[in-house]
Amino acid sequence: MEYVDGGTLETALARGGTFSEERLATVAREVLEGLAYLHARNIAHRDIKPANILVTSDGRVKIADFGVSKLMCRTLEACNSYVGTCAYMSPERFDPDAYGGNYNGFAADIWSLGLTLFELFVGHFPFLQAGQRPDWVTLMCAICFADPPTLPHTASAKFRNFVDCCLKKESAERWSAAQLLTHPFVCHDPKTS
């Protein structure tokens, strides 16, 4: 395996504080390229979070920890095990009947990416106050019954819309990795504006 010496996005957040939108656009694009590759091969990662995204010495990011990834069948069958990190699980993971009927690992990866980018922007997990460490039931209730979190007004309209496309409660309404790669937030080149 390739050695990646820059740590994870989680450690980068702890060391350097929140990420700029320019940096987040790059992170989003690189993670989406990885997810698009996986999803095109019917593989759902199922545990996207800051601790599972590695940073290279030149600042690129790579998806890591495929321990709970799954090869999805053509029917996108329900996964009967609760694997992954519950804080980053999508609403349909907890309650498939209420949020889309079936668990879709690809849409769940997008939900987790949205939460990850949100966390890197504000500096703490989106459904909680800074420093709060709730139990599994608190997280499940927040994810399933609360409205999706919204970015502060300091975020640009493009970034807010991008995160909104990731954090749709209904799994069928979330954009796919391929669709998100066309979103203006990740397509925008700040050097040309």
Rank of each mutant, 00 (worst) to 15 (best):
E2R: 10
D5N: 10
G6R: 07
G7N: 08
L13P: 02
R15N: 08
G16F: 15
G17K: 14
F19Q: 09
F19I: 10
S20K: 00
L24D: 09
L24R: 07
L24S: 09
L24C: 08
A25H: 08
V27M: 11
R29F: 08
V31H: 04
A36I: 05
A36L: 07
L38I: 06
R41D: 06
H45G: 03
R46S: 01
D47R: 00
D47E: 02
D47H: 02
K49V: 11
P50L: 09
A51F: 10
V55L: 13
V55E: 13
V55I: 15
D58A: 08
D58Y: 04
G59V: 07
A64L: 07
F66V: 09
S69N: 10
K70V: 12
R74K: 13
R74M: 13
T75A: 15
T75H: 14
E77P: 03
E77W: 08
N80V: 14
Y82Q: 15
Y82G: 10
V83G: 12
T85I: 12
T85E: 11
C86G: 09
M89C: 12
M89A: 15
P91R: 12
D95V: 13
D97I: 15
A98R: 15
Y103A: 06
Y103L: 07
N104R: 12
F106R: 11
A107F: 04
A108C: 04
D109K: 05
D109W: 05
I110Q: 01
W111M: 01
G114T: 00
F121K: 02
V122P: 06
G123S: 09
F125E: 08
P126V: 02
F127N: 08
F127E: 09
R133C: 09
D135Y: 01
D135C: 04
W136N: 08
W136D: 12
V137K: 13
T138S: 15
L139T: 10
M140V: 10
A142K: 10
C144I: 13
C144P: 07
C144M: 15
A146S: 14
T150D: 11
T150H: 13
L151I: 06
L151N: 03
T154V: 10
A155L: 05
A157Y: 05
F159I: 05
V163L: 05
V163Q: 02
D164V: 05
C165M: 12
L167W: 00
L167A: 03
S171Q: 08
R174Y: 00
R174M: 01
R174T: 00
S176I: 04
A177W: 01
Q179V: 06
T182S: 11
H183W: 12
F185V: 02
V186F: 13
V186K: 10
C187A: 14
K191V: 06
S193H: 12
